Simulated scan of single mutants.
Amino acid sequence: MPSAQAELFPSPQADLFGTPAAPAYVVPHDIAVNTLRKTLATLTAANSWPWDPDMKAARMDRTVPKLLAVLPADEAEHWGRLIAAEAARLDR
């Protein structure tokens, strides 16, 4: 098929989804570790949960798992144990 005719009949799905999405942002390792370190320090210094229930959910249920996901498995397990221990202490 000549190239001029190929332009007359573009792929039927060419515009259905637009341009491909940009790759998702991945937190750099240093930022993940620093944020986990600050979170752990905040929890360690507290006698009760330092955040209201919504902020607690945001940090503990969403942010911390996302940060742990970018770390190597052994490092993620280490940070996860430390933060879980402080969370358990604050839940008592």
Rank of each mutant, 00 (worst) to 15 (best):
P23T: 07
A24W: 00
W51R: 01
A69I: 04
L16K: 07
V64C: 03
V70A: 13
F17M: 11
N34I: 05
A87L: 14
Q13K: 12
R92I: 12
V27L: 06
G80I: 13
Q5K: 12
M60D: 04
L36V: 04
M55G: 05
A4G: 00
S48G: 15
Y25K: 04
L82H: 07
I83R: 02
D52Y: 14
Y25F: 12
L90N: 05
A41R: 13
L90A: 14
T35F: 00
P72T: 10
V26D: 01
A87S: 10
V70L: 05
A57E: 04
V70M: 06
T63F: 10
H29M: 03
A22F: 11
L67H: 05
D74K: 07
P50L: 04
I83D: 00
Q5A: 13
A69W: 01
A46E: 02
R62I: 13
N34T: 09
A24E: 13
A45E: 12
A41Y: 01
P72G: 11
I31D: 06
D61A: 14
L67A: 09
D91L: 15
L71M: 08
D15G: 05
I83E: 00
N47D: 14
L40N: 03
W79T: 01
D30P: 00
M1Q: 07
M1N: 08
L71V: 03
W79A: 02
N34C: 08
K66Y: 10
R81G: 11
T44A: 11
L90C: 05
A57Q: 09
R37N: 06
T42Q: 11
P65T: 11
G18N: 10
L8H: 03
V27M: 10
T42V: 09
V27Q: 03
K56E: 03
F17E: 04
I31K: 07
A22G: 04
L43M: 15
A24Y: 00
V64E: 00
R37D: 11
P65Y: 05
S3W: 14
A46I: 08
A21M: 14
A41V: 08
T19R: 07
S11H: 11
P12S: 08
E7F: 13
A21K: 09
A22H: 04
P65N: 02
P20E: 05
I31H: 03
